[in-house]
């Protein structure tokens, strides 16, 4: 046994392309299945929520105006970077109590899911857009456009796969997001932030906060600058809170209860469509 003391990683948040600590300076312990403390994560507050929505809003115009093809390239790049750091993620999931085989499968599925959505970025507008027959001298067409800033409330199961499956369709469609990571095991989410950071994703497109859901959820879902909510929490009270808060500024809400994240029903372009607005254009023609 060597005398060396291992350097433990400080898990911070990922906001605006940087890795800040919570504004409050507070942390909370993360435990493995045997209830041993394995790390501390930032316990974010409503002010961190506020500070995360600002870069998400700022990044929106740049991200949504990128060509669909380029967004696809960037999503593919995330998958590439994740592939390169596979071992790290498998390790991290194991520390949380996952079996090696399951952890490997989870990381591989996460990579494949990113590739899946990378392929859709320049195809979903063709599939979901339409040319509409009209009775006047107009060329009339409808195309989907991103909604804006999406609040993503992720679940506690499959900490990496869930967050990837939620973020990928949201950003593939040109939205930006503020993600509340799993409360009980947010470590993979924070490490995924590092992958995003090293894969050409502009700062602010994905912002990841850790902490107690009940301290952040209310302010995040009420925030006037958030345009939509993607929620995986099935708890009735939480759902009610989200629905009521979303009504203040008429946000799009998609409740997405999931039993099994490895199920291939999550590879599905309709998830992109949940956060798209249909724009119809009447163009004078044939006169």
């Amino acid at each position: 046994m060597s005398d060396r003391i291992e350097i433990l990683k400080t898990y911070k948040t990922y906001v605006g392309g940087k890795f800040p600590r919570s504004e409050s300076g507070r942390t909370y312990p993360i435990r493995d299945v045997d209830d041993h403390i394995i790390a501390n994560a930032c316990r974010c507050t409503r002010k961190d929520v506020r500070d995360a929505v600002i870069p998400a809003r700022t990044a929106f115009s740049g991200w949504s105006e990128k060509s669909a093809y380029n967004r696809g390239q960037i999503l593919y790049r995330i998958a590439e970077m994740l592939e390169g750091r596979k071992d790290q993620f498998v390790n991290e999931l194991q520390r949380g109590g996952m079996k090696t085989k399951t952890a490997e499968k989870e990381v591989e599925l996460s990579i494949d899911r990113l590739i899946y959505f990378a392929g859709w970025t320049d195809k979903y507008p063709q599939v979901f857009g339409s040319i509409n027959p009209v009775a006047s001298q107009h060329f009339n067409f409808t195309s989907p456009e991103p909604t804006g800033v999406v609040a993503v409330i992720s679940s506690d199961e499959s900490p990496l796969l869930s967050i990837v499956s939620l973020i990928a369709p949201v950003i593939a469609g040109g939205n930006t997001c503020v993600v509340l990571a799993s409360e009980s095991y947010p470590l993979s989410a924070v490490s995924f932030g590092e992958v995003l950071h090293s894969s050409d994703v502009p700062g602010g497109v994905v912002n990841i906060l850790t902490g107690y859901r009940k301290e952040m959820l209310d302010h995040l879902t009420k925030h006037m600058d958030v345009n939509a909510v993607l929620n995986c929490i099935t708890d009735k009270e939480i759902r009610k809170l989200i629905d009521e808060n979303a009504s203040i500024s008429v946000k799009r809400v998609h409740h997405y209860p999931v039993d099994d994240w490895s199920d291939d029903t999550h590879e599905n372009p309709y998830l992109i469509l949940e956060f798209q607005e249909q724009k119809t254009t009447w163009h004078p023609a044939g006169i």
Partner: peptide
Amino acid sequence: TGVYQSSYY
């Protein structure tokens, strides 16, 4: 109101 605001409004 207790609600964070957006410059859109």
